[in-house]
Nucleic acid binder design. Structure first.
Lengths: 343, 343
DNA sequence: TGGCTTTGCTAAAAGGATTTACCAAAAGTA
DNA sequence: TACTTTTGGTAAATCCTTTTAGCAAAGCCA
């Protein structure tokens, strides 16, 4: 038989006092509202004794705040997002917030539908990796006074807070690094996507190539539902048909994994035949032989900044439209795959 | 300026009818409650026109159901849990449920504290990978009529529904497979933990070893905060001090990663020097050279069964204490690391 | 016409909290 | 003593829905 839940009303009745008094005491307003110390103590003891806990549902309804943050990413099972999820979780809980997650698959319709459902749930804030075509939905969200924070990518056309990394700069650096190590024909493997972070990475690569008077060689894999085999297969084609390639720069780690598979099938040696660098570091890159050079995003800092910004918006200290725009630097880890000295 | 949220009361007033009527229509009870088709239509159109959406908060408060499921795992950034998270998400959303996640780090105190906070939030159900020492907390949860479903591991001492895999059987099979491939000295690398799934895996290994009259060689790494280097280091020690080892069976994939690192440091060749098998398959096992044999847990089915069980409990068709105990078979993928023929 | 059923709709309670406005009694002041 | 202030508290509205119980009018039957 389930223990009947005890409410503030039960407490008031048991103690022969009013609900108001109990509420004041619960919310630490006893002094301010001139409840005697004696009664305060008595109520506090009784509350502890019966193990009363206020209903968050009722509080949320009354206060219009649910203490829930939505974490909407492209795919929660992606290591990058899962890691961020893990890190923001702690900070959220510490501040009394819970996190609901959801994955968009980068599908605008799905994203819109999800945002729509959450509005109804009166969540307080949204941490979002935006899909394409989400400008108006996000603008609405902000207009309706939800706290919104974009990350991983942002939307240039709207004024919304975000936490992102220096995609272009890091791609430029990594490409330059390859050039300095003697590469003359660097291929860039990316996905066809209008996500800003992908565009920036391509841009960084392009600028470095141009700065050294080299030629761009870009493989754009179709974004949607690129089955693993086909990606790997297409990378093989790319390498075979560009016989002068001496390096590959992968725009994401999952592309790199496909690429490593492809190079392995082609019996290409890294770094002897081709140097390799990838955006977005991964545990596996240090396990793989040879170790793969990669650009590491500062996960911990991203998570920190996300929660810092979110909490600032939620506590709404004055600023309703807080301008929280953070661009974080990455770290290029040069490993065996792009540096003969490391072998 | 945020659009003022429109409530059922606003609708009633605008249309000059009662709240009750609107509510009936909203809940599809117009016919049953004898609201005229004419009025029903009028209200439905008005609702669509103003884009009214009922407040879930108020509904939850009234109905005592929040349509929220807690997904409490050891670590949401762990690939296994993240994958399950991704898969149950879809099924949950399809049924109108949202998922709040949290990580316990296998710390009983943290787990208890988390469960405690969620009770207050009046969530409907819990999907839990239990930490040690959680019997009484979970028993309480069930007594208080929450839907509870354990997974990955379960607690023998209490009667609670679960979804797990055949740990012992699969470990037995994998060990037997190594023996059939000529191994005479198989080392088992695991963590010191009283988690039932780890015990079962050890048990399966042990029985297979005994069945063939061989000797057990078990390396138990300390569970808590095993820093990566120390794990890898200890595995190196283990291999060095057991010169006759001809195979290693890792109880989890993260242990295998450490082990691969260790074997690499020792310049051991797989499978020439040592055969390798791991519990819990991983994408990298097929990327790694040589491919690593592994036992794959049926993620999709686990997720399916979890939501099937959860929904059954939540819809509470008669059975409040649904006996939902599922044990799923795994698949052993024999790859290059444990089979010379595959090389 | 009187009594019964059906039709069409509504008032109000409940769910659990917060908060404003107010009220009595005691204490202070002149 | 008469008035003001302080002390210690409470009643009731509010947040938004669902749902029970019930009411008036119309329709039906004899």
């Amino acid at each position: 038989m389930p223990k009947k839940k005890i409410s503030i009303k039960d407490i008031a009745r048991s103690l022969g006092i009013s609900i108001t008094t109990v509420s004041f005491i619960l919310n630490g307003k006893a002094k301010e509202k001139r409840i005697s110390d004696e009664l305060t103590l008595k109520v506090e003891e009784y509350i502890k004794h019966v193990g009363y806990r206020p209903s968050h549902l009722a509080q949320s309804l009354r206060l219009g705040k649910s203490k829930v943050i939505v974490f909407m990413v492209e795919d929660i099972s992606n290591q990058f997002f899962a890691s961020i999820a893990r890190k923001i979780e702690e900070k959220a809980y510490k501040n009394g917030y819970k996190i609901i997650y959801c994955s968009t698959d980068n599908d605008p319709d799905k994203a819109k539908a999800l945002i729509d459902t959450f509005k109804v749930r009166s969540v307080d804030g949204f941490i979002i990796t935006p899909t394409p075509d989400l400008e108006s939905t996000i603008t609405e969200l902000i207009e309706e006074d939800f706290a919104v924070l974009l990350f991983d990518r942002w939307i240039p056309s709207i004024d919304c807070s975000y936490v992102v990394v220096e995609n272009e700069k890091s791609a430029f650096e990594a490409t330059s690094h390859l050039i300095q190590n003697g590469c003359m024909n660097i291929g860039f493997v990316t996905v066809a996507s209008d996500q800003i972070q992908m565009i920036d990475r391509l841009e960084g690569y392009g600028k470095a190539i141009e700065a050294h008077g080299q030629n761009k060689k870009v493989l754009m894999l179709p974004f949607h539902h690129l089955s693993e085999n086909s990606a790997s297969h297409k990378i093989q084609q790319f390498v075979k048909s560009n016989t002068d390639l001496d390096a590959l720069f992968f725009a994401t780690n999952y592309l790199a994994f496909e690429g490593l598979q492809a190079l392995n099938n082609l019996k290409k040696q890294i770094p002897n035949d081709l140097l390799v660098v990838s955006f977005d570091d991964h545990y596996f890159f240090t396990l793989f032989q040879p170790n793969i050079s990669a650009i590491e995003q500062p996960l911990e800092t991203i998570a920190e900044k996300l929660m810092e910004g979110m909490l600032k918006m939620l506590n709404g200290n004055g600023d309703p439209k807080l301008d929280f725009k953070i661009i974080l630097p990455n770290t290029l880890h040069i490993r065996e795959s792009s540096d003969f000295k490391k072998i």
